[in-house]
Design a protein around this nucleic acid. Structure first.
Lengths: 253, 253
DNA sequence: CGTAACCTTGATTAAGATCAATTCTCGTGG
DNA sequence: CCACGAGAATTGATCTTAATCAAGGTTACG
């Protein structure tokens, strides 16, 4: 009795309780689908909830389908034999991940042994994701050019992002990469909020940030310290205050 | 008179002279298009010939369209302020490159200021490419799901390749990367030729190979030397003889 | 046969990883 | 409300890999 009540409470009290279909309407990939199609997807999809640090899938696992992030944050990462990690993407809510294997072998005999290209892990408490099974989705693509074009456009952006990521990793030192990251966050934040605000807030831990920038926490910490000594920025916990935007741009080069 | 003759000669004498349409039929991306569509593409496309070392486009140039490689070899690469270079892809004949900007901003207002994501250069003499102008091609996509699916599948593979590339660069040392490259070439060559052949031939210069593996020629040379001293392989010019496939696999780890 | 591009080898350096030791922060239970 | 403990972040000392710098050697091609 007590348990049932507890389970019901959030639904009852929370005015903005959301169905999967409401979520799907905010997903770029799905924006060309009609209500009926969204409902048919919703029917076959499965919600799953994870805690911080929980694995969503390993790159060794057989492919089941792709995911939509409902709440929380997910990291997509590779890991070496000796345990070092490198983060490829951070996926926020309303975004999809794990679509690549769906389409790799299109035309060829559908491979049953297809795998995820990387690992994924929830990096926030109460990260809710929805699994969209592979089989049910492919038919939709074959009958909907608009949907295809959405996917193409999403893939194209991701390709450009990875190009950029490789450029950063291979042609720039850690200081340039850190400055480049802060600059990008600064621009992103000021695009959203219109007016200029010189403080940005990290959404991820510094451990994860280090891994995303292709370095380790110790080096990231030292780099922040150096940028502070040069009066470029000031880091307090998850808050980064940009002191000199011009010097920051120059450093990112 | 003399000039006209010279220009005609190769066509006359060369029995396997090829029209653009013959080439297009071998391009995976185009494999769902009919003769009429191929012809309409052919009419608006432009052939260009480059020598080794010629730039095809810079990443700073406005986007014109994508390319098909007819003959020769093309490298797609990024370059740093101080001139260091990193190769992202090597594109061989019958393959396309530069499609990404076509689709990045689909749905949004068509940006006129869109740019190529990286630089490209011919790395063989007599590299012939065909430029497919952007505007003329987008209509085709909006009316052809099969074409879309081909593109999606091509992009998906490229995404997985870049994932893998980043994994190699960030989580493996040079020796592992070199061993991994040789192993991949070994497998590719033996898949094509059925029977096992332990010698592979480099298609690119060692300078370019170093850049593709995220290192420099000096380090590549030393790495080959070390792998030779360990009786794993033997390098003579562009020929690599695999001496111990098991040790090679182990080294690539 | 000569020159330029390509490749190799050696000596040195530097960036950043690793190892080790605190300190800080924050959620949890008493 | 405070104390505790675990994970996160910082700092310092040292080490390692691979880049840089410098000089020859090889190969291909006009």
């Amino acid at each position: 009795m007590r348990l049932t009540l507890l389970r019901l409470l959030p639904v009852r009290l929370n005015g903005d309780y959301m169905t999967d279909i409401d979520l799907f309407k905010k997903v770029y990939l799905f924006s060309s689908l009609n209500e009926a199609e969204l409902e048919s997807i919703s029917k076959i999809s499965r919600s799953r909830t994870f805690n911080k640090g929980d694995i969503i899938f390993f790159d060794t696992e057989p492919y089941l389908g792709f995911y939509v992030v409902k709440t929380g944050l997910v990291k997509i990462y590779k890991i070496s034999n000796d345990g070092r990690e490198h983060i490829l993407h951070i996926i926020a809510s309303d975004n999809t991940f794990g679509e690549v294997p769906l389409f790799e072998n299109f035309g060829e005999s559908p491979k049953e042994d297809s795998r995820y290209p990387a690992n994924s892990m929830a990096i926030e408490e109460n990260t809710q994701v929805i699994l969209i099974p592979a089989r049910a989705f492919t038919d939709l693509f074959e009958n909907n050019v608009k949907l295809c074009l959405k996917l193409i456009s999403g893939f194209a952006r991701r390709l450009r992002y990875l190009n950029h990521h490789i450029e950063e990793l291979t042609l720039k030192d850690v200081t340039k990469r850190v400055a480049g990251f802060v600059l990008a966050e600064f621009n992103k934040s000021n695009k959203q909020n219109k007016k200029t605000k010189s403080e940005i807030t990290l959404q991820i831990s510094k451990n994860d940030l280090a891994s995303l920038l292709g370095t380790i926490p110790e080096t990231l910490s030292r780099t922040f310290k150096k940028l502070n000594e040069d009066n470029i920025l000031e880091v307090t916990g998850k808050a980064i205050l940009v002191l000199d935007i011009n010097k920051l741009k120059e450093t990112a080069s």
